[in-house]
């Protein structure tokens, strides 16, 4: 059984590509198309890493992290942003909300996997 990663992105194509990349590396991937659904996945199950997009309808990535950090089971779970956004202010906002790292799309698989290896528990 590989380590479990929850990936949240409203773009179906990004979900497909990230899922493919992570599954090929032996990770067990849970996919979610928005923040609300992502929170439903976090019902106490063991998640080793959360990767989320920033710009999503209804609940954006920052709001999602704030909600996740309120949950006792996931206060120390690493959370990475995977987004096209690269503004420093946004990165700081994410850091303050409790994000572990920030990766700008489009990513090179090796760099994404290297970042995951560094933070995954």
């Amino acid at each position: 059984m590989g380590k479990k990663i929850l990936f949240v992105d409203d773009s179906e194509s990004i979900r497909e590509i990230v899922n493919f990349t992570l599954e090929n590396e032996g990770y067990d991937v849970l996919l979610s198309n928005n923040g609300e659904n992502a929170l439903k996945h976090l019902n106490g199950q063991d998640i080793n890493l959360i990767i989320t997009d920033l710009h999503m309808p209804e609940m954006n990535g920052i709001e999602l992290i704030i909600e996740i950090r309120k949950m006792e089971d996931y206060q120390h779970t690493p959370i990475l942003f995977l987004t096209t956004e690269s503004q420093t202010e946004k990165k700081m906002e994410a850091k303050n909300a409790g994000a572990t790292g920030w990766i700008v799309k489009p990513f090179v698989p090796a760099k994404l996997l290297a970042a995951i290896n560094k933070v995954i528990r």
Partner: peptide, 17 residues
């Protein structure tokens, strides 16, 4: 080749945005 294709496949999301 696969590693080079993966970032390119994200074109759809970027163009859509």
């Amino acid at each position: 080749s696969s590693s080079a294709i993966i970032p390119n496949l994200k074109f759809q999301d970027i163009i859509k945005q």
